[in-house]
């Protein structure tokens, strides 16, 4: 037993510490993402956003959290209780476990596994279960409709997301996220991947059920979709899960397309400026890039009206799928022609 402690004890203790740090950081980011969202939406609609609780309303997310904690959890009598309670926990847990493979800085990654991209894809493809289980277990028509919408939406957009990831993988030749960031990409490769970056941004909006693709919630038609029967903590878990997923998807975009923790535009700027930019810690660049992608989420929400469901499906299957499939062939062909395969 002592031997076991010596081989695994210290490692376990450090891993637990890292997990606590990552989860704490993610939850804090989630809290202030809700604040940022309300401030940005406020700014875009010429309002002030939260401003009463604390200086500049900075304590608003904490007040909201306390409010949700102190409310009563209501479980509908017709609901399937175990599945009803498991759904929000599953969604929340899945939005946290994916962070294990995200590299925050050089060497700052909890699990540097060889199949990091596949792991992220596997975890994000499981997120749909939380929604389906919630919709089915609530035993309510609105919730069920929301779950059905969400399931078909997430499955549809995963297809084109997978193909976009294949484009990136063709260029870098590895499934390890750290190596994806560090593999240098020439300028022509960046230009070749840029359209896929845009398609990926739209796909992650659909994948996280955010506006303009927030039909699973669709409060104007199905009153809140799959989470209509949830209250207090169970609702808070859905809410946290959704926002943690937004941050996660932005972090994945940063890792795949925006060069992770590396200083930006290193190929485009003169050497003097890039040296100065390299002085800034990698974590800061990572956070800034992720925040920039998150801003697109909020921007889209403030700007675009909600899609109709058939338009959403048409965009996914008839436009994104052929486009990304063509782009995989184009990227592969270009790499083969110019003998640039990694």
């Amino acid at each position: 037993m002592m031997e076991l402690w010596e081989t695994y004890g210290i490692w376990t203790a450090f891993t637990l510490l890292y997990i606590v740090l990552i989860v704490g950081g993610v939850l804090l980011s989630v809290a202030y993402l809700t604040y940022a969202e309300r401030k940005v939406l406020g700014g875009m609609q010429r309002r002030q956003g939260p401003m009463t609780v604390g200086p500049f309303g900075l304590l608003q997310p904490i007040a909201d959290g306390l409010k949700l904690f102190s409310k009563e959890t209501i479980i509908p009598s017709q609901a399937n209780k175990p599945v009803f309670l498991m759904a929000p926990m599953l969604l929340f847990a899945l939005s946290l476990v994916a962070w294990a493979v995200i590299p925050f800085d050089k060497g700052w990654v909890l699990a540097n596994i060889n199949v990091g991209v596949l792991y992220l894809f596997a975890i994000s493809s499981m997120g749909v279960y939380g929604v389906i289980m919630a919709g089915w277990a609530s035993n309510s028509r609105y919730a069920f409709l929301g779950a059905l919408r969400s399931a078909s939406q997430m499955v549809s957009y995963e297809v084109s997301m997978g193909l976009i990831i294949v484009c990136v993988l063709l260029c870098v030749g590895t499934l390890n996220l750290t190596e994806i960031v560090t593999t240098p990409r020439p300028v022509w490769m960046q230009i070749l991947l840029f359209p896929m970056f845009i398609v990926f941004l739209v796909s992650i909006l659909a994948e996280t059920n955010r506006a303009p693709f927030d039909l699973p919630e669709g409060e104007s038609e199905i009153t809140g979709g799959f989470m209509v029967e949830y209250s207090a903590m169970t609702f808070a878990l859905f809410f946290l899960g959704e926002y943690a997923n937004m941050i996660l998807m932005s972090a994945i975009t940063t890792t795949l397309f925006l060069g992770g923790w590396l200083p930006p535009f290193s190929m485009w700027l003169p050497a003097g400026i890039t040296d100065v930019l390299a002085l800034v810690p990698g974590l800061v660049w990572f956070a800034l890039k992720t925040a920039a992608v998150l801003f697109v989420f909020l921007w889209a929400r403030a700007t675009l009206p909600r899609y109709r469901y058939d338009q959403l499906m048409r965009l996914g299957w008839k436009i994104f799928l052929p486009l990304t499939l063509f782009w995989v062939v184009l990227v592969a062909g270009t790499l083969l022609t110019f003998d640039a395969l990694p």
């Binding site: 792991y119 596997a122 493809s125 499981m126 389906i132 059905l148 399931a151 078909s152």
Partner: peptide, 22 residues
């Protein structure tokens, strides 16, 4: 066999079983 493990989750859990459940 990490590749097969991940593909099992992506294909069976993420796609096939969703449609099953549906």
């Amino acid at each position: 066999a990490e590749f097969i493990a991940m593909i099992l989750v992506i294909v069976y859990v993420g796609a096939v079983a969703v449609l099953f459940l549906f």
